[in-house]
Nucleic acid binder design. Structure first.
Length: 130
DNA sequence: GCCAACGTTGGC
DNA sequence: GCCAACGTTGGC
């Protein structure tokens, strides 16, 4: 899950305890949101500034409709911060890893919610020092 | 600040 | 229903 830190950063999520992931207006991203279940984990990525994965959050509420959408067509989830990465993983590192060349974060850089596959997850975790 | 990628819009 | 024009996003 990507966010611009000057709009909503990892620290903001930590201080609030729980955050609603809404405002997504892209169908692919929406599908990814809709596929999430309670307990699923997600990386928190800082876009525009930082350009790195900084932490892991966990879905606390899934399958809700976006409160910012008057038509109720778009999806949203709520997430809680789980842990901060021992070493943040930068976009540069992700791009430099051939095994991650096909991940949505690289392929569809404009996607605000990108899918991370199980093997990609463990690769990034080991890069993060977990 | 620039540009590539992508989505949306509107004329036909 | 196609496609050119335009707007937005995000990395550089």
């Amino acid at each position: 899950m990507k966010s611009e830190p000057f709009k909503y950063s990892w620290d903001d999520l930590v201080s609030e305890g729980e955050g609603t992931w809404d405002g997504v207006r892209n169908h692919r991203a929406k599908n990814n949101l809709a596929a999430m279940e309670v307990g699923d984990q997600a990386f928190f990525y800082h876009s525009r500034e930082g350009l790195e994965i900084v932490g892991i959050c966990e879905v606390s509420v899934a399958g809700i409709t976006d409160p910012t959408d008057p038509e109720g067509k778009w999806a949203a989830v709520k997430v809680k911060p789980k842990s901060k990465l021992p070493c943040p993983v930068t976009l540069k590192q992700v791009k430099a890893e051939p095994k991650l060349a096909d991940c949505e974060l690289v392929k569809y850089s404009r996607l605000s919610v990108a899918e991370i596959k199980a093997d990609e997850w463990s690769i990034i975790c080991s890069m993060a020092g977990i």
